[in-house]
């Protein structure tokens, strides 16, 4: 790669730019789930309730598998390095950064993206609340914010403490808790207060 590799554009194009030089490799892999150098690997996922079968270069991140191969472009690529949260999806019930994991590592698993949470006709409660409370401006970070927000309420419900939880055994919703737990989702438009309002709204609804 040339010296522009640390620019954002360089990073975004990274995987497309790379030439595929095959490493020589002694065959020592004992298990069946093995790829040859450069070989495509079969990956089976259940995405938003639908089973999909892909043949992927093992380098493919889960994010690129969703966007480039399954054309589920709701999930966004911001930094591609775990620093912004735009790529947040829910895998096996937990939110993760889809840019920092390989699709092959999730063979056989269930993935929920923003497209799976709700549709235009049947919005998820969190999607509705984001609209009502103006939880976005440009909307780029929003799919990640919503996937994260849905998971955050579940994590609180499950009693998982956070950095601002005073008593590790007593986890409850507060603005401070929501802000801390949402810190992995950056919003360049700074819609933060409205996102918290949307989350409180949904949390209230769920309790009632």
């Amino acid at each position: 790669m040339s010296s522009d590799q640390l620019t954002r554009r360089g990073l975004l194009q990274g995987s497309a730019v790379l030439a595929a030089a095959a490493p020589t490799l002694s065959a020592a892999a004992p298990t069946p789930k093995t790829s040859g150098a450069n070989a495509m690997m079969p990956v089976e996922l259940t995405v938003n309730g639908r089973e999909v079968h892909l043949q992927l270069d093992p380098r493919t991140s889960l994010l690129d598998a969703l966007r480039e191969h399954l054309h589920l472009t709701g999930t966004k690529k911001g930094c591609d390095h775990g620093q912004c949260g735009a790529c947040t999806v829910i895998v096996e019930g937990r939110r993760i950064n889809s840019c920092l994991t390989l699709a092959v590592m999730h063979d056989g698993e269930k993935v929920t993206t923003i497209e799976g949470l709700g549709t235009s006709d049947h919005l998820h409660a969190m999607q509705k609340a984001f609209i009502v409370h103006d939880g976005y401006q440009c909307g780029y970070c929003t799919p990640g914010q919503i996937c994260s927000a849905v998971s955050v309420l579940e994590e609180i419900e499950a009693g998982i403490p956070s950095h601002v939880t005073a008593d590790l055994d007593d986890v409850a919703i507060s603005d401070a808790e929501l802000r801390e737990r949402m810190s992995g989702n950056i919003c360049r438009c700074a819609a933060y207060p409205n996102i918290i309002a949307a989350m409180r709204d949904v949390a209230g609804e769920a309790k009632a």
Partner: peptide
Amino acid sequence: MRPFTYERATDVAAAARAAGSVQGA
């Protein structure tokens, strides 16, 4: 990212053995 091969290990000893014997693992 440079190309690499991938395996899903199912046994601790085998994983360590593979890591010790495959160059660049």
